[in-house]
């Protein structure tokens, strides 16, 4: 049994402009100690989906199932879910400055979390654990810095403190929502290294949410690419980087600096804007931006189907058009020229 198994998760919000379908059917699972990368542009539903699992999206209409160790998170009472948050599943957020309470000492905020779930732990013991944790995430002189306020920490140190807090109760799963996006490039690598090291040390499963494929390049076991509230490609990390199938994944890969787009070559942006989630496009929601768009794409929505073993893609292009190489490119182009889709083939 997987640690977390999410089936057909749908999340929508009623707004004055209409119903926003933030997540439109998401299925994934993650095993103990593994790392899942969820990639997508802002508004693709990657943060909403995980925050919904944790019960942090008030006012959302939710359907589907999310079994965490066999128990459905989505049908839990708020109090049951509260007991999961922290000791079982913890979260790390994007901006550590705004995510830490500005008026409380960093150590106090860690102590508070420990004592909220383990009320028998004395304040002194919890503090000792906070100091240990801060030391473990690489904060110098943790016995002194434990009494600092967040604004006295640097950006990287704040995120280290958030990581320390996330690890405080030794959770089985950590959800990291763009943990390095707000940090300097040099600090980003340090934080990723730290997370990787601690994940192995604690044997924690990790869901890494990012818009940057570079971040999960050497971190994730599996990758889920989200577009307009739906997973469009789902595979292991190597396949995504070397044998991606969906044109959106390919677009993301081409827009990584010095990545698969070729060293020294130009970055190729994906043209257009992410679609509206109030009225998503007909057919494949990526079709208005897709360079390989065919007639079918505008009408029929492609299901997530297996293009190789353990490799799913929601695209009508031929199954064997994998990767960014010239052969695959030729396959794709001829498919588009002939209007041939997998349905007919």
């Amino acid at each position: 049994m997987s640690l977390l198994e999410v089936t057909d998760l749908k999340v929508s919000f009623n707004t004055s402009d209409g119903v926003v379908q933030a997540v439109r059917g998401m299925t994934f699972s993650i095993d103990r100690g593994k790392t899942l990368g969820i990639v997508g542009e802002s508004g693709s539903g990657k943060s909403v989906s995980t925050q919904t699992l944790m019960g942090l999206t008030p006012g959302a209409k939710v359907s589907g199932q999310a079994l965490f160790e066999g128990q459905d998170l989505l049908s839990m009472t708020p109090d049951q879910l509260r007991r999961i948050r922290g000791p079982q599943i913890s979260m790390i957020f994007q901006d550590p400055l705004s995510s830490l309470h500005p008026l409380y000492k960093v150590g106090w905020q860690i102590v508070e979390m420990i004592r909220a779930h383990e009320p028998n732990v004395s304040k002194a013991d919890a503090r000792k654990r906070a100091v240990e944790l801060l030391g473990m995430v690489g904060i110098p002189q943790p016995d002194r810095r434990v009494d600092d306020y967040p604004h006295q920490f640097s950006g990287g140190m704040r995120q280290r403190a958030m990581i320390a807090m996330a690890l405080a109760l030794n959770p089985k799963l950590i959800i990291a929502d763009e943990p390095t996006t707000a940090l300097d490039a040099t600090v980003q690598a340090q934080i990723l290294d730290l997370m990787l090291r601690l994940q192995r040390e604690f044997d924690t499963a990790l869901i890494m949410i990012t818009h940057d494929l570079g971040v999960i390049a050497d971190l994730a076991d599996d990758v889920l690419v989200m577009y307009a509230g739906k997973p469009v490609e789902q595979t292991d990390r190597r396949s995504l980087y070397y044998r991606s199938h969906h044109p959106y994944s390919a677009g993301l890969l081409r827009s990584i600096p010095s990545g698969a787009g070729g060293r020294g070559g130009r970055l190729i942006p994906i043209p257009g804007q992410p679609p509206s989630l109030i009225s998503p496009p007909s057919g494949c929601s990526f079709h208005p931006r897709c360079p390989y768009v065919m007639d079918t794409c505008r009408v029929d929505e492609p299901p997530l189907r297996e293009v190789a073993a353990g490799h799913g893609s929601a695209c009508w292009l031929p199954k064997d058009a994998l990767g960014l190489g010239p052969e695959a490119e030729q396959l794709r182009e001829s498919a588009v020229a002939e209007g041939r889709t997998e349905v007919g083939a």
């Binding site: 509260r82 999961i84 000791p87 913890s90 979260m91 830490l100 500005p102 909220a116």
Partner: peptide
């Protein structure tokens, strides 16, 4: 609406707290 309130909820604190 601040991020640190979301953090407080993510820490599993009671709603009153």
């Amino acid at each position: 609406g601040e991020d640190y309130i979301r953090t407080a909820r993510a820490k599993g604190l009671s709603e009153r707290r």
